[in-house]
Design a protein around this nucleic acid. Structure first.
Lengths: 252, 252
DNA sequence: CGGGCCATTGACATTCTTCAAAGTTAGTGG
DNA sequence: CCACTAACTTTGAAGAATGTCAATGGCCCG
């Protein structure tokens, strides 16, 4: 009980073993004893607020971060002040994996709404993982998952239709919320239309128009950041390129 | 000397320690002793030919592969017979990292030209890596690099201009050839225009037109698969969005 | 030598971006 | 608590970039 964290109002620190994200996060598949060891190296910082940075591109890499509550976006800033949004991260998702290679952050991470984050010093994690094979395995899995996830996005951006992209984006959010026991069909977007467009490679105006079009077609109800998916099946059809324009997907 | 591989004409097996790719591949940063241990688990298969598959999406995952010579493309097949090209892999590059998570291949890998490939059974690699911290570290770095690389491509596809995409593609190839001591300005494309277009999210015709346009503008010389880059600086300018249309990159 | 795939080119269609403007919302400071 | 500004969102109209269709020629491989 030595390394146990204190619980306070300002800063509710839930040990990994009690965290609702345990099945999504690093401890997955670990023995209780090993979870405890992991727990001891995890730092739980106080809440972050909209606009705060976890890190910026070029910062020295020290820790991985796990979203505990709220949401975070990662993005690659470009010289001219622009940026490319790389991802939106929900509770249970790891951030900073791309920084391991050069011990330097490859992108920036900014908090989209009031959020809680766990910090895992990588040196400690690496050391622990060489002592705990199941943790090493879980690390490999998580890194691999991230690669697979990025490839999924590549496939998404390869599809050209703007409708397909937005539909896929919404379904992705929906499924991720669902796994976290949030509603799969009723949620709030923590990112702006601008950020959605940037992420999907579309102009803001296109995103906005699509939302109203989807609404007109009864696919969803949108009121600013509040989204209600009304016909998830049909959204899935759109992703497949089945709906509309008589499925034209070749690219053999 | 027990596990040493035999050298034959049909199948030139170079031990890791003698491989020219040592600085790009897994052994990077390892002690000679550890390289030897790694060497013992690496399988070196006989040459593969154009069209051969290393694995297909859905195959059970056993091994990672490293391109030793030649080139390989990875792609995600879609139900309707189409596909999304995920990457082109040159000597020294690892393939299959996205399969670790579910022990099942997440994409397919097809050989583009006569190639040589090393196969690394993952179970052995994982076991060895938990005994050799520097190998574990190198594994983390490689996985992390792959994530960073995928993010770079996302950024690339976020740029909308077709010119920027093709220029970035050519520069990427050029730099990768360079690191392998091939010419950075004179090389052959092992992939078809179709595959390039698919990878970049462009129609074949657009790719073809861009090649001729680039040639007309003196940026390069193209003759079927043979490419000679004549003005790498200007290609880099195009990537930055500096050249042409008075740099219009906002997406703040 | 033949067939099929690959590449190129032209003409046309369409989607999406760009530009412009107005309405909304949220946050700030008085 | 209210006024005010800045940022965000929406909508319309026009234009541009890229995709689609179609046809031809060339190359590679069997």
């Amino acid at each position: 009980m030595s390394g146990r964290k204190i619980i306070s109002f300002e800063n509710i620190k839930v040990a990994c073993e009690n965290c609702s994200l345990v099945s999504l996060c690093l401890p997955m598949g670990l023995d209780p004893d090993d979870v405890e060891k992991l727990d001891e190296i995890v730092k739980r910082n106080r809440p972050l607020h909209r606009g705060d940075h976890l890190f910026r591109e070029g910062d020295k890499f020290h820790s991985l971060f796990v979203v505990k509550a709220g949401s975070v976006k990662t993005y690659a800033p470009s010289e001219d002040g622009g940026e490319q949004v790389l991802g939106f991260h929900l509770p249970g998702e790891l951030i900073g994996l791309d920084a391991i290679e050069n011990e330097e952050h490859h992108c920036s991470a900014k908090v989209l709404e009031t959020s809680a984050v766990c910090e895992i010093p990588f040196t400690n994690l690496e050391e622990l993982s060489s002592q705990v094979p199941s943790l090493q395995h879980q690390m490999y899995r998580l890194l691999s998952r991230e690669i697979g996830h990025d490839e999924d996005i590549l496939t998404l951006l390869g599809k050209r239709s703007a409708e397909e992209r937005l539909a896929a984006f919404l379904i992705s959010l929906s499924e991720r919320f669902k796994r976290r026991d949030f509603s799969a069909s009723d949620f709030y977007l923590s990112m702006s239309r601008h950020e959605i467009g940037n992420y999907l490679g579309l102009a803001v105006e296109t995103v906005s128009r699509l939302f109203t079009r989807f609404q007109d077609e009864g696919l969803l109800k949108v009121e600013r950041k509040h989204i209600q998916l009304l016909d998830i099946d049909r959204l899935n059809n759109i992703i497949q390129g089945e709906e509309r324009n008589g499925n034209k997907r070749q690219y053999t």
